[in-house]
């Protein structure tokens, strides 16, 4: 039984849940993800791991409602159970397996965009706990969509957290790329490694900036997948002219090598079908996809 112990709304359409999942909690590391199924008839949905507690055998997930399946997950309450929680999936962040004294020589810049702030959190926490210098940039649309600011401050210290909003409604005004540029060019901060997680378009531009600044950058890809163990190939993407599977080769890749445009194109794959199903779920079975408008 994968019981939900806590369920809360973090922001508009953004939910956080603490779930009993011993097999995941015992083994997961920053960088990895999991797959859930809400009910017996539900889709397998890949979600990022936002936190874990090995002692309590729980994991924390943060997700947004975008399609029918995520709405169904959001309807679950504390005390309910997921039909399935499986993981950890994907490879841990590369520093987890490296000699820690090597990792400590580096200054890390973590960039979380929107929901991507959630998977950045365990990375920030891990690095800080292992004595590694780390700055975190959180980018979000507007003040109301900001998540996990306090957790991040608690993890790495207020002076290391930089929040920016697209509309300037809270703290800095502008994109994460402007913050990166400011920190490096105006404030004299030096970074040896950047980890960027967020919407594909944000990662694309983030990488463009870090490339200019000469900061090697890791990005985390979350394409559509079915099994998450290498079997289906739905999550394939082109990295440095090679076809890779995000689930077994990733989800983290060298951002300088990822074909973002190709990956964004593939993201559209189930949009119409999924959108159709969402409308059907919310408004009844009135949209059959034949009208050409939905």
């Amino acid at each position: 039984m994968f019981r939900i112990l806590e369920a809360e709304v973090l922001a508009d359409k953004t939910y956080k849940m603490v779930v009993e999942a011993p097999n995941v909690a015992h083994a997961c590391e920053p960088g990895q993800f999991l797959i859930v199924r809400a009910h017996e008839e539900s889709e397998r949905i890949a979600l990022t791991i936002c936190d874990y507690d090995r002692g309590k055998e729980t994991v924390t997930i943060v997700f947004q409602t975008i399609g029918e399946s995520s709405y169904k997950i959001a309807e679950l309450k504390a005390g309910d159970c997921f039909a399935d929680v499986v993981g950890p999936l994907g490879n841990p962040a590369e520093y987890v397996k490296e000699p820690i004294e090597e990792v400590r020589k580096r200054h890390y810049l973590l960039v979380g965009g929107g929901l991507g702030t959630a998977p950045v959190y365990p990375q920030a926490k891990w690095l800080k706990e292992h004595g590694v210098d780390v700055d975190v940039i959180i980018g979000t649309k507007t003040k109301d969509t900001l998540i996990m600011e306090q957790e991040m401050i608690d993890a790495v210290g207020e002076e290391h957290v930089f929040v920016t909003t697209d509309d300037g409604s809270y703290k800095r005004h502008g994109m994460v790329t402007a913050v990166i540029e400011d920190l490096v060019k105006n404030q004299g901060r030096k970074y040896d490694k950047c980890v960027s997680i967020g919407p594909m378009i944000m990662m694309k531009f983030c990488v463009k900036m870090t490339k200019e600044l000469g900061i090697p950058t890791i990005v985390s890809m979350n394409p559509i997948m079915v099994d998450g163990t290498g079997m289906c190939g739905a999550c394939r993407l082109v990295v440095g002219d090679e076809v890779k599977f995000a689930c077994v080769d990733g989800p983290e890749f060298d951002g300088f090598l990822v074909d973002f445009d190709g990956a964004m194109k593939r993201m559209k794959l189930y949009k119409t079908e999924e959108g159709r199903r969402l409308l059907e779920y919310q408004e009844g079975n009135t949209h059959k996809g034949n009208c050409g408008k939905c």
Binding site: M231, C232, G233, L237, V243, R266
Partner: peptide, 22 residues
């Protein structure tokens, strides 16, 4: 068995190309 193979021909990343496994 494992990971599905692709042909590595142009257009294989297009929308609507699946592995039989998927």
């Amino acid at each position: 068995a494992g990971l599905p193979m692709f042909m590595h021909i142009p257009g294989e990343q297009a929308l609507g190309v699946y592995s039989a496994n998927e």
